[in-house]
Nucleic acid binder design. Sequence first.
DNA 1: AGCCGTGATGACACGCGATGTCATCACTAG
DNA 2: CTAGTGATGACATCGCGTGTCATCACGGCT
Lengths: 184, 184
Amino acid sequence: MSRWQPDARERLEQAAIELFVEQGFAETTVPQITARAGLTTRTFFRHYADKREVLFAGDEIPEMAARMMAEAPEGTDPMRQILEGLRTVAATRFDPRKDEIRIRRDIVRSDPGLVERDLRKRAALSEVIRSAFVARGIWPLRAALLAETAMTLLYVSFDEWLDSDRDLFDVIEKTLAELRETIA
Amino acid sequence: MSRWQPDARERLEQAAIELFVEQGFAETTVPQITARAGLTTRTFFRHYADKREVLFAGDEIPEMAARMMAEAPEGTDPMRQILEGLRTVAATRFDPRKDEIRIRRDIVRSDPGLVERDLRKRAALSEVIRSAFVARGIWPLRAALLAETAMTLLYVSFDEWLDSDRDLFDVIEKTLAELRETIA
DNA sequence: AGCCGTGATGACACGCGATGTCATCACTAG
DNA sequence: CTAGTGATGACATCGCGTGTCATCACGGCT
């Protein structure tokens, strides 16, 4: 038998989310989380850089985006490439986890520090997309606009998606149509 | 004569920026700032909610945006309204302060926590614009897209502006033209 | 079987950010 | 002259985050 129970990270994450839902993020201390997970405070910070990170650690979307950006056939139309990426991400990372994402969203919205962390996540994804376009030969200004547009489409649609029962990509397509009309 | 020297906030802000430039944001402690300003730590947190806020306190742009959004003649074309707002903000809040803004930008870029705070500022401005459009009768989805587009134009142009010697609004107009072409 | 390196964890100390609370004192109104 | 106001100082306290060293299971090697 092991000296320690396995799955330390999973236990920490589950204990943290439970406590955040029960009593709020700010009111939950790291010692409370680690006590419920059967670990010590020091161990928490070995797994997560700070208290917020326990809610953001599992995010593989940037890596996924980087891979898809690199693997797309050369010469693919950039806007089409973005839409295909959004379609894949929406179908694999968002639609199947709607309930879990709703819980997470409610926690994040309740605390300004978590909102900030969420915005940084969005900025990081934008940067992944932007630099990937630059690497594919797209001019920097256009690459930045493509990345920002992708984020606008994703996050504007995200809110509407969470409060509806539609598929995320359907909302995204509607949002894009509206965006084209708005800017013209 | 006063018991305390006047302009506590100004002294705190100046001392803070000096120290951030000299030795970095993370390496500067609040007691160091207050010592240079001739005050105590407790007083710092009476003026600023947290250590980062000393760099963000003077921002009147959201109030300015809210006022301009409310005062625009009814029925103004939304995109034109955004461009006029950007033109005014660029000419009054950005172009005359380019050197100061460069210093601030370098400090902010050097620390993840400051980047996050900057992203929240951007999100707050977007929300001001969005809700103002909703109040003017624009549909929520379109209002959100208008606000996000304004932020995209402003911040994508912002970086290019800081590294050039052009006027910000000139860059914004070029960015908008590129955006229209990119999305079409 | 015995030894040893590795890696995760516990235990402890500590600095800094941030807040609550009360005292102090200049200024002002009356 | 007095009472109220408002900004600041002084002090205590809590929680986050980090550095450091000891501990101990595991797996590989001899």
